[in-house]
Design a protein around this nucleic acid. Structure first.
Lengths: 336, 336
DNA sequence: CTGAAAGCGCTAACAT
DNA sequence: ATGTTAGCGCTTTCAG
C-alpha cells in the first residue's frame, strides 16, 4: 500500500509537505501541489481513513439506527426509500454510512458504544423503539443525532406530517360527501397518536360526528388484522361509507375482505390507505391514499445532521416537518 | 474519551498488560484480567476502531455495492431483503457494513479506492453493472469479494437459481395442461439469460413447442411495458393459455391489462410471476410465482465472504446456488 | 514555502 | 506474568 511517506521520498519532499499538497493547503507552492498530486496519482495513492480519523477525530461516517422489531424495518418501502435517500445525500456531502447495532465483535454493547467505537460523527435514528433506554442514551449523548418520526426534547427531528396527512384525508372525504367514517389505526405509537389527533381535529373542524365504535386499533402492515376488523365493521347495520386504513398493505387486506363479502369498491364502500407505496399506483382501482414524502424525509434528515456536525454550537434543535400529498386515486366514491 | 492508558494508570499496569487483559489473552493472570475488565467497565472504556485498524490491518468492515441504476436497488423487495440479511449475518460475526460508492470526500473515486480508503475486509457486490470496469477492477483486486447473481471467473458468487426457477415453472404449467406458453422476460442481463435458457431447456424436456412470437423482451419492474406486451399477445388469434412475466410487479401490469380486456384470471388466461414478493401473497387471486430465497442469498453471501476473509488462502472460489420454490397460488388454471 | 517532530490509541514483538 | 518499545499512516503545530 503506497502511503504519504512513499510519495514524499519520490518527490524529494517531507511527508508534511505532501500532506499539505494533497489537501491543497495555501501555504505551499502551487507547482509543488500539482507535482505531488500527479505523483500520488501515478503511484496509486489511496489515503487511509483510520489514520486520518485517529488524528483528526473526524470520521465522515454517519451511523444509522434501523432496528426492525418485527423484521420489517429495511424491507418496508417507506424505510427503504428513506435509507436510499440518506445514503445518496450523505454521499453528496462526502459521508459514508454504517448501521449501528448492539453487537461489538463477539460482545453485546449499547448503540452508543457501537457508534463511539466506529467514531460516528453523527447518528440518524430512523426506526427504533424510542422508549428503549439504549436509544435514549445515544440521543442524550454528545453524539449529534437526528430522529425520524419522533421528537425528543431539545433534539432535532424530521417528521412526516401525520396530522396534516389525516386532515387532508378527512377534508377530501368530507368534500366527497362522506360523513360516516371508520378509522382503523395502527398500534399506539407516537405516529399513530398524531394521526388519531389529526383525525379527530379534522372531523370536528368539518362537523363530522365520530362514531367511537368505528375508530379501531389494528396493526400496521398486517392485512389479516385489518381484514378482520373490516369484516366487523361491515356487519354493522349502519355501516360506514368509508374506511381509513393504517397503511396501504392493510388497505389491501381490507379490500380482499370487502370483495369477499361481495361488495364493490368504491360503489358500495370507499376505502383509503396511507403511505402511497408504489403498489398503490399499480392497483386497479388506484388507491386513494396519503403519499408520505420519504425521499424528502431521508434527504432532510441527512442535511440537518450534517449541518449539526459542521456547526455543533451554532445549530439549534429544529423539528422539521415534511408534508406529503393526497393521492386521490379511485377508491373513494362521491356521494349524492 | 477514556483510553487504555487511563485504565493502565488506574490499575497500576502497563498499557500492554491492559490490552492483553481486555482481549483475554492467555499470558496474563486471570485475576488481572478480571480486575482490568472491571475497571474498564467502570471507567466506561470504549475501544477505538481506527487505532485498532491502523495497527491490525483488519477493520471488521464489509463494503456493500448496491448500485441502483433506476430500477433495481435498495427499494426493491428482493434487494432490501438481501441487504437486511447481509446486515444481520455480518452483525452475528462482529462485522459492520458500509456502502461503497464512487465518492470520496469531495472527489470522485473508483469503488476500489473507496473500499480501500475505508479498509474494507471484503466487499459484497449485490447489484451493480457487472460490465462496468470499476466493478471489474474491485473484483480483480486483492480485496475479497463475492457477487450476487453474477459469476466472475475464479471468484465466489451466490446465485439465485434462475434456471431451476424457470424449470419449476414450466414443469408446473405442463402438469396443469398448458402447451401454449408466452414468456415475457426482462432486459438481457445474465440473470435473464439464465431464465431464458431454463425456459427453453424445460420446454424441450417436456416436449412443449415454443412459439418464438410469444417470447418477448419486456422490462423488469415496469408494469406498463408488460401491460403493453400483454395486449399484443392477447390480440393473437391463437393466443397463449398462459403468460410468464419477469417479476411480480410486471405481472401486476399484465393483470391490469388482462382485466381491462374483460378477461378473467385464471379462467380465461393464466399468468405467472417471478420473485414471490409479499404482495404476491396478499393479492387475490394469490399469484402463481417463483419465490426467490432472498433471505438465504443474503446470509450465504455474508457467510462465504467472511469465510474467505478468515481463510484467504484456503478458501476456494465457489458458486453457491440458492434455490427458491414455486408458489402455486391461484393464477394458473388447470386445463382439460 | 518547506521540514522536523510529536502524537492520535492501539497492538504485538520482544524483553524481563 | 508483566513491561518496554516500536510503529501503523496521517495531520498539524512550530521552527526555519
Amino acid at each position: 500500500m503506497v502511503k504519504i511517506k512513499d510519495i514524499a521520498e519520490r518527490c524529494g519532499l517531507s511527508v508534511a509537505s505532501v500532506s499539505k499538497a494533497l489537501h491543497g493547503k495555501t501555504d505551499i507552492n502551487p507547482k509543488t501541489v500539482e507535482y505531488v498530486k500527479k505523483v500520488a496519482k501515478e503511484m496509486g495513492y489511496i489515503p487511509n481513513s483510520s489514520a486520518r480519523m485517529l488524528k483528526t477525530n473526524h470520521s465522515y461516517i454517519i451511523g444509522l439506527l434501523f432496528i426492525d422489531s418485527t423484521n420489517s424495518g429495511l424491507t418496508h418501502e417507506y424505510f427503504s426509500i428513506i435509507l436510499s435517500n440518506i445514503r445518496d445525500e450523505c454521499k453528496k456531502h462526502g459521508y459514508d454510512i454504517t448501521f449501528i447495532s448492539n453487537q461489538l465483535g463477539k460482545n453485546e454493547c449499547s448503540y452508543y458504544e457501537h457508534a463511539k467505537y466506529r467514531n460516528c460523527d453523527g447518528v440518524i435514528i430512523a426506526c427504533a423503539d424510542f422508549k428503549d433506554p439504549r436509544v435514549i442514551e445515544i440521543v442524550e449523548s454528545e453524539i449529534p443525532t437526528i430522529t425520524i418520526d419522533y421528537d425528543f426534547n431539545d433534539h432535532s427531528s424530521v417528521n412526516s406530517d401525520n396530522i396534516q396527512g389525516m386532515k387532508d384525508i378527512i377534508k377530501y372525504l368530507y368534500e366527497m360527501g362522506h360523513r360516516n367514517i371508520a378509522f382503523i389505526h395502527g398500534e399506539l405509537t407516537s405516529v399513530t397518536q398524531k394521526r388519531i389527533k389529526g383525525f379527530y381535529n379534522a372531523c370536528s373542524e368539518y362537523g363530522i360526528e365520530v362514531n367511537e365504535d368505528f375508530v379501531r386499533e389494528g396493526r400496521y402492515h398486517i392485512p389479516k388484522v385489518s381484514g378482520q376488523i373490516t369484516r366487523e365493521l361491515l356487519q354493522n347495520k349502519n355501516r360506514p361509507t368509508v374506511i381509513i386504513y393504517p397503511d396501504d398493505y392493510s388497505l389491501l387486506g381490507g379490500i380482499t375482505e370487502i370483495e369477499k363479502q361481495g361488495l364493490r369498491i368504491p360503489e358500495d364502500i370507499s376505502v383509503v390507505g396511507y403511505d402511497g407505496i408504489l403498489l398503490s399506483r399499480l392497483m386497479r382501482p388506484i388507491f386513494t391514499t396519503y403519499v408520505q414524502d420519504a425521499v424528502e424525509i431521508g434527504k432532510k434528515a441527512s442535511e440537518k445532521l450534517i449541518e449539526i456536525i459542521d456547526n455543533p454550537k451554532v445549530t439549534l434543535p429544529e423539528r422539521i416537518s415534511v408534508v406529503g400529498k393526497l393521492q386521490e386515486g379511485q377508491t373513494v366514491k362521491k356521494l349524492n
